Computed example of a mutant assay.
Amino acid sequence: MRRPRPTEESRARAARITQALADLLPEEPLAAGPTEPGSAGERGPRGGDCPGCGEPLHPTAVRHGVEFDACGACGGIWLDAGELEALTSGLDPAPGTGAQNEADLRARVPAPVSRESDVRYRECPRCREVMNRRNFGTISGVIVDECRHHGLFLDVGELEEVEAFLRAGGRAVGEAARARATARSMPPPPPQLETSRPVANESVGASAVDVLWNLFFN
């Protein structure tokens, strides 16, 4: 995929988006201190190219201990593995107040904005491997680009759509939908086969009687 060349207009727009993100997400200090290799606090290299437009990603702001890698050109956000879960923890509604089914959920949450006319597979900014596309929460309609090793990319506006989906109770409704889909995909149990063991036992018994009869009376 050929990447667009930056222009003066795109650079000015990048500066405006970066400032808007900084204003939206107030900065918080990151927890300091060394981490052991492989620990939950270990972070990979920052930066890289934006999977959406190819412009550089930059650390922008921190919220709930999560530092965003944002693209100032298109507004996309890169989150390392586990960061989306940390960012959206606590958004589920109180028991009994969330949507009860998919119809109820659709009435509470507007449909996600369609952002592309064709399917595009994007590269992970960390390993450059092609990422998978998945429907967040099974039924949200927010299609995220995910690298199974390093994290996921959200287009501009998708983080807000994910948060609205979770606040309406979409996590529980999506899990129920996934369970139903799994049950439908399971093969039916094999039919119960009638055993011929009683018949065989009867045949053995009859043969023994015939042998004894012939022995004593013939």
Results as ranks from 00 to 15, higher is better:
V162H: 00
P110A: 14
A70G: 08
V109C: 05
P34V: 02
P4Q: 13
H64Y: 10
R184Q: 11
L87G: 00
G54W: 08
R46F: 12
E158P: 03
V66G: 08
S89F: 09
A15W: 03
A206C: 11
A40M: 08
S140T: 01
I143W: 15
C124F: 04
E160T: 14
R122T: 09
R122L: 10
G98A: 01
T97V: 03
D210W: 15
A61Y: 03
V113G: 13
G33T: 07
D118S: 15
L105K: 00
E161K: 04
V156C: 15
A73R: 08
R180C: 00
G38Y: 05
L91K: 01
Q100V: 00
I139Q: 01
N132S: 12
E163R: 01
L159E: 06
R171H: 01
H58S: 12
L79A: 05
A107E: 12
M1T: 11
G82K: 02
A179M: 01
G98M: 00
E146C: 08
H58L: 13
P51S: 12
H64C: 08
E85C: 02
P34N: 06
V204L: 15
A22C: 14
H58F: 08
H149P: 05
S89I: 11
E55F: 07
V144N: 04
M131S: 03
A86L: 11
L79R: 04
S196W: 05
L79C: 05
D104Y: 01
V62I: 15
A73P: 05
I17C: 06
W213V: 10
G96N: 02
S207K: 09
A183C: 05
R197W: 11
L30C: 08
V119W: 15
L79N: 03
M131N: 04
R197G: 04
G72I: 01
R178Q: 13
G205T: 07
S203R: 11
A179G: 01
D23E: 14
T18D: 13
D80I: 01
E146S: 08
E55S: 11
L25Y: 13
I77G: 02
G169S: 03
G98Y: 00
I143K: 15
G41H: 12
G52D: 11
A81V: 08
H64D: 05
R11D: 11
L91C: 03
P198A: 08
D118G: 15
P95G: 07
N101F: 01
T60F: 03
S185R: 12
P51M: 09
L30G: 05
D155Q: 14
P187A: 05
P93D: 01
G76I: 08
R197Q: 09
E83H: 02
G41M: 07
Q19E: 12
P189W: 05
R120D: 13
A177E: 02
A86K: 13
R63W: 10
P51C: 08
G76C: 07
S10H: 06
S207M: 14
R5K: 13
V199W: 12
S185V: 06
G96L: 02
A164T: 03
A81I: 13
R171F: 00
Q100K: 01
S207L: 14
A164C: 09
I143R: 15
C50Y: 03
G169V: 00
C74I: 07
C50F: 03
L24A: 14
P125S: 02
P125H: 02
F216I: 10
P6A: 07
L154R: 03
A107T: 03
